[in-house]
């Protein structure tokens, strides 16, 4: 039963940049793929993002970061999620993130990060597969 439940995703933008078109396009694509998307809005602190993720009990958090602060923001959100006991929540996202940085973040427990030009199907598919995997682990644990 658990695996048929809609995937719940929080989409938000941390930090100072105010360009939310990407986040909105992604939110709409995830919705159209059958997910329940909690839209968190702009200018969110890592603390607020994690508080929302916990209250909404989401499967995944998707952050859009265009400001260049990704090396700070993603690890900070990951750390706070883990502290809140949300270790199993997928943290993913996208923006202007150099490949080397994305790899370093993934090493540190962040999920895949998507750059400009990523197809929405790829993003949707990644979240579906990754959430299904994590739910399976949780159920068998």
């Amino acid at each position: 039963m658990t695996h048929d439940e809609p995937i719940r995703v929080l989409v938000a933008k941390p930090g100072l940049d105010g360009h939310d078109r990407g986040a909105k396009v992604v939110a709409a694509a995830l919705r159209d793929a059958g997910m329940e998307v909690v839209y968190g809005g702009l200018h969110k602190t890592p603390e607020a993002i994690v508080a929302m993720a916990v209250q909404e009990d989401v499967d995944a958090v998707g952050l859009s970061v265009l400001s260049g602060a990704h090396m700070t923001l993603f690890p900070e959100v990951r750390r706070r999620l883990d502290e809140a006991g949300a270790n199993d929540v997928l943290l993913t996202g996208g923006g202007i993130i150099p490949v080397a940085d994305a790899e370093a973040l993934t090493e540190g427990g962040v999920g895949r990060l998507f750059g400009p030009g990523t197809s929405l199907d790829e993003l949707v598919n990644y979240i579906q597969v990754e959430v299904a995997r994590r739910r399976a682990v949780k159920t068998s644990a």
């Binding site: 809609p6 939110a27 919705r31 793929a33 059958g34 998307v37 839209y39 968190g40 809005g41 607020a48």
Partner: peptide
Amino acid sequence: SSPFTGGALLGDRVRMADLTL
């Protein structure tokens, strides 16, 4: 929820942003 895809955009939090913490 969309009756076609089952997806939903839950946007009410945006208006309650300052209450989050």
